[in-house]
Design a protein around this nucleic acid. Structure first.
Lengths: 192, 192
DNA sequence: CGTTTACACTAGCGCTTGCTTGGTTGACCC
DNA sequence: GGGTCAACCAAGCAAGCGCTAGTGTAAACG
């Protein structure tokens, strides 16, 4: 067995699994369906993954790592004023939703199907991502750009953003940029 | 078989099923688990419901109907100015989340597990509920209380509200009233 | 050359799943 | 006191599930 490496082959299989998990849900996706999608037999699947659980963990891990990387890059490259940073984060969030949509949908819907150990590991990744948000929101609150309770504001914003996977059409007219701008406009009270 | 009535017995069984669906997820909840929770044997379950699917539909139907009823009542009883109506809707939404929490969590997470016909029927119920929101948001937009694109504002607000099932603690310090006030404060730009 | 390694296959075990069948019970009705 | 009816039970079927064991093979390596 070949456990826990991250060969390119495994990356590709993970990507295909994500697609199926979104279509059918984790529990309804059988190892036989996964194998067929991958063009192999069901037994061969366990050469790449210890068990079905591990496939789920791999899908979510990749999505979250990408989100984190993109968000960090966006923060590095943008201006340092609170509004620019807020905008950069929102745009980065919506852009990962576009490029890694399957993985993020799986992360949002199937989180509870993770084994406790995997949930623990991935929870830390997710916490790191949300910490970036809280930092940026704190700056916006301090600058008077947003009003309200820090905890609630952060939850409301994350909710509005994560909910987009339900209705956002990547092939539609609106770009991530558009959505980010609209969201910021809705919640900010510009100084005057 | 006893199909499709709504006896009090069936109502009670539906309530218990909702609890299990939240804990385990629909697919992982077996008819044997459901039966045990209900204090009967698995075979007896099919005296009350045609199949497992129908239990899910019953859970979601009850939750959505309650949400609709509470929202309508709230709108009837509040003042007619846009901010009061906005506040009433947000509070009503969060209050159903408190009283019918299980049903709403199931509706949000397990919607896709519904059979197409059930999804169709319940989709209309859900549309009726969201229409109430759009009406109230339109008034708020017209009054200049909120700025931005109607479609996007509505999606963002629904996202922020529905996301609350992930983190809101009914036994915590914050009341639905508090949350509603905070959310309105965050997104409104009061005339001055 | 022989050995190792990565990847795939065949075959099937042991178990659980949703659901069916045929029958029993006790409350109520005229 | 025979008939009705909702509610429940015992037993089990057919299908599908995750996963394993053992084997084959072709490329890579020393």
């Amino acid at each position: 067995m070949n456990v826990m490496n991250d060969s390119p082959r495994r990356k590709e299989l993970t990507r295909q699994a994500a697609q199926l998990f979104v279509q059918e849900g984790f529990d309804r996706t059988t190892v036989r369906m996964l194998a067929q999608e991958m063009g192999i037999k069901s037994g061969s699947l366990f050469h790449h993954f210890r068990d079905k659980q591990e496939i789920l963990a791999a899908v979510i891990e990749e999505g979250t790592e990408n989100a984190l990387a993109i968000a960090r890059q966006a923060l590095d490259q943008c201006d340092s004023d609170p509004e620019a940073r807020l905008h950069a984060m929102a745009r980065a969030h919506l852009e990962t939703l576009l490029t890694d949509r399957n993985a993020h949908v799986v992360a949002l819907y199937e989180w509870r199907r993770l084994a406790p150990e995997a949930r623990d590991h991935l929870g830390h990744l997710r916490d790191a991502y949300e910490a970036l948000w809280e930092e940026v929101l704190d700056e916006a609150l301090a600058a008077g750009l947003i009003r309200g309770d820090r905890f609630l504001v952060s939850r409301f914003v994350m909710g509005a953003l994560n909910w987009t996977v339900r209705w956002y059409d990547p092939h539609g007219e609106r770009s991530p940029e558009d959505l980010a701008r609209e969201l910021i406009a809705m919640i900010t009270h510009p100084a005057h």
